[in-house]
Simulated scan of single mutants.
Amino acid sequence: MSPVAANMEALQFSLANKSLKYTKIPVPRIRDPKNVLVRVSYAGICGTDLHIIQGHFPCNPDQPLILGHEFSGTITEVGAEVTDFEIGDKVSVDPNIGCKKCTFCHEGNPHFCKNKGTNTTIGIFRDGGWAEYVTCPETQVHKLPESITLEQAALCEPLSCLAHGWDLAGPIKVGKNILITGAGIIGIFWACALHLHGHRRVTVSEPKQSRLNSLKKLDLGFDLITPDELKERQERDPEYLFDFVIECSGFPPAIEHGISLLNQGGKLVIFGVAPPHANISISPFDIYAKELKIIGVNINPYTYPNSIGMVEAMGDRYLNYDNLGIRVYSLREYKEAIEALKKGTIAKAIFKL
């Protein structure tokens, strides 16, 4: 079955002149028999997308590219060799693809794959979800349970990255003191995931009071403070320490401060993406004496099913767009969406198609 329309709405990015434009282009055809055609319902704007548009993150340099690596939708066509999906299936798509042959892939680390890895990511190196239709390998498509809406499923990709961080940092035992630095959308997701798992001794540090006020809508009962308040508490009480610091800001001074707040045996989880050439200062003696662990988190190897389970468990209690500070836009409104993200007036923007 082919889609009725011959053309579709899309946002195309050109790396050559760093321009993003709204356009109408032909609906893509299935050329690989193991691919499916997805009618996109919701597609998120990630911080990575903003870096790509600014020319600060690598993407396909050879041709105009449709961005968007966080999206959900409905299958409208299947390739001749597709066996596990049918027309009408509601799905979310994992954009990250390994070669499935190299040592890293065989060891369960496709995000380290040097043959493909991020060089074939849907929405970064091949056309993604900022369009009405997109073709995807069936290996990257995940069928949704009926309990998950397509609106919620648009959040599966960032939550799959969180699930990877959760696995690397674990076990995160209930009762531990936890600090989240940065209350952007990822920091908010971490707060929700921790609350879902029963954690209550959680502090969130964020310089923007508007973000802290927004976080109050979720009624998590966590301690919401600014970095200045965090420093004041540390100065008043040298034992004001944390077992886990979940770093979601990507701001090097915040990372350094987080290290100083780690208790013996503490773990620093670096989730936020810092500038590539940034540096931090850390005492090797402290790492030795306290047996500190510093954990980097890079995308989502084999954790997409976990994210679907997480979305199902979170439901509207945690994933209500209004409470999360997520605003929905049409593709035509892309300039307004990007501007709102840059100003920080919203936590996240999602296109509804």
Score class of each variant (00 low, 15 high):
V273T: 10
E81G: 00
M8S: 08
S210E: 11
I185K: 00
T103D: 11
Y329C: 12
L196D: 06
A131Q: 01
L261E: 12
N35C: 10
F222E: 04
K352E: 15
G117I: 13
Y321W: 00
V38C: 11
D219P: 07
T139V: 06
A274R: 01
L155Q: 08
P110I: 07
C136H: 05
K342R: 15
A254N: 06
N17Y: 08
T345R: 04
D89E: 02
N109Y: 14
Q264C: 07
I287C: 11
S260V: 01
K335Y: 03
V245K: 13
D89C: 01
C248N: 03
A163T: 01
P61N: 04
G55D: 04
H106K: 15
L292K: 04
K343C: 01
A349Y: 13
E206M: 09
L144G: 05
I178C: 14
V134I: 15
G258W: 07
N7F: 08
G79Y: 01
F351W: 05
S214H: 07
S14C: 14
P158Y: 10
S2A: 14
S92R: 02
G198I: 03
S147E: 15
R126W: 06
G79L: 01
C102V: 07
T118S: 08
I52M: 10
D286S: 03
G55M: 02
N300R: 10
I308N: 11
A80H: 14
P58E: 08
I30A: 02
V91E: 09
G98P: 10
L50R: 07
T226Y: 08
V297S: 11
C105I: 03
I346M: 12
Y288R: 07
I186P: 03
N60S: 07
V204K: 00
C113A: 07
Y302D: 09
K101A: 12
F242V: 00
I287L: 09
K24F: 15
E86A: 12
N279M: 09
R201N: 15
L20C: 12
F57P: 07
Y302K: 13
P238T: 11
K116Y: 11
D316Q: 13
I186S: 03
L218D: 10
E70N: 05
I122E: 04
P276L: 13
L150F: 06
L230N: 03
I346F: 04
Q209P: 00
F85P: 07
L11W: 02
I295L: 15
F271P: 12
D127N: 14
A313R: 12
D94T: 00
C156S: 15
K114V: 00
P3G: 13
L224G: 11
D316A: 07
A153L: 04
N320F: 06
G170K: 00
I122R: 01
T74L: 03
W190E: 01
D167Y: 04
A337Y: 13
L319H: 11
D84E: 12
Y304Q: 12
R39E: 12
S72D: 09
I122D: 06
N119I: 01
K173R: 15
Y240F: 14
D94N: 14
H111V: 11
Y22S: 10
I225R: 02
L261A: 05
A274E: 02
N279V: 04
N7W: 03
P238L: 12
N7V: 06
L230P: 01
V82G: 12
T149C: 11
L224Y: 14
A154I: 00
N60A: 06
F271A: 02
K34G: 15
